[in-house]
Nucleic acid binder design. Structure first.
Lengths: 131, 131
DNA sequence: CTGGATCCATTAGGATACTG
DNA sequence: CAGTATCCTAATGGATCCAG
C-alpha cells in the first residue's frame, strides 16, 4: 500500500494530465468558475456578470469571457439594439462541466472553515513557536 | 427562461463564491490538481512527484506541497533515515475532493480536442478573414 | 534526497480613460 | 451598454546555487 505509486503513477499523470492541464488552467482559471456558474442559469448580460461576481474588473471580465467563448464554453449573442445588449450562455460542453463545478464549490464551502483553521495552526507553529 | 438571472444570481455568486474562490484558487491552482491526483493512490515521495508530474520545477513542487500541507490537504511524513525520505499523502478532506478532480480531468480529456478545434476556428475567423 | 534562498523574466491583473 | 487601450504594479514561475 505504501508502494502503490512506484512506476505506475508517472505514466498516468504524464500522459493524461499534461495536455489536460492546459485545458484545466484555462477553464478553472481565477475568474472562469464564477462566470460559468453565473451563466449556468440562463443567458446573462455583461453588466449582470460584472455585478454578480464583484471583485472582477471590467478588463478581466472581458478577457475571461473572450477566452471562454474562444474555447467554445460560452455562446455570445449580440442584440443589435440601442443601447447594445450582449448575452452569454453556456454551450452544451460547458453545461456538462457545471455539475462538477458545483461539486467543487460545494466542497470548498463545506471545508473552508476547516481549511482556514488548518492554515492558522500551521502558521502559528512556524511563525511564533515561542517567540 | 431568458431572465432567470436577474437579481438572483448576484446573491448566489456573491455570498458563496467569494469566500470560496480563495479556497478554490489555492486548491485548483496550476500544480495542485496533478499533485493531489498523483498522491491519491497512496503515500508518494518528493522525487516521485517530481518525476510523475513532469514540467513542474523543484521550486513549484515545494511551494505547492507546502501550501497543500498548510491547508490540511496533504499530510507530510518525514522518515528520519539517511538519505532522508519524505512522503506525502492525502488527508480525508482531500480524499473527499478526489472524485471531483477526476471528473474534472475526465471532462477535460473528453473535450480537449473539441476545445482545441473551437479555439482554432475562433482564431481563424479573427486572424485572417480574407487577409 | 528534500528542500531553502536568490535572481530574473514573464505574466496576471487592477486603475483609468476613451469609444461605438 | 459593452467593451478597448494604456500604464503600471504584484504575483508567478523558471534557473541556479547552497544545505541538512
Amino acid at each position: 500500500m505504501s508502494q502503490g505509486n512506484t512506476g505506475v503513477t508517472s505514466q498516468v499523470v504524464n500522459a493524461q494530465a499534461c495536455p489536460v492541464r492546459e485545458v484545466l488552467d484555462r477553464v478553472v482559471g481565477k475568474w472562469s468558475v464564477p462566470i460559468l456558474i453565473a451563466a449556468a442559469h440562463g443567458p446573462i448580460r455583461f453588466t449582470e456578470l460584472e455585478r454578480a461576481i464583484e471583485g472582477i474588473s471590467r478588463r478581466m471580465l472581458t478577457l475571461t469571457l473572450r477566452n471562454l467563448e474562444r474555447d467554445g464554453l460560452l455562446k455570445r449573442t449580440v442584440h443589435p439594439t440601442v443601447p447594445p445588449k450582449v448575452e452569454y450562455e453556456l454551450t452544451p460542453v460547458a453545461h456538462e462541466l457545471h455539475g462538477t463545478l458545483l461539486r467543487l464549490t460545494g466542497w470548498a464551502e463545506r471545508h473552508r472553515v476547516t481549511i482556514a483553521e488548518s492554515r492558522a495552526a500551521y502558521d502559528e507553529e512556524r511563525g511564533l513557536v515561542d517567540a
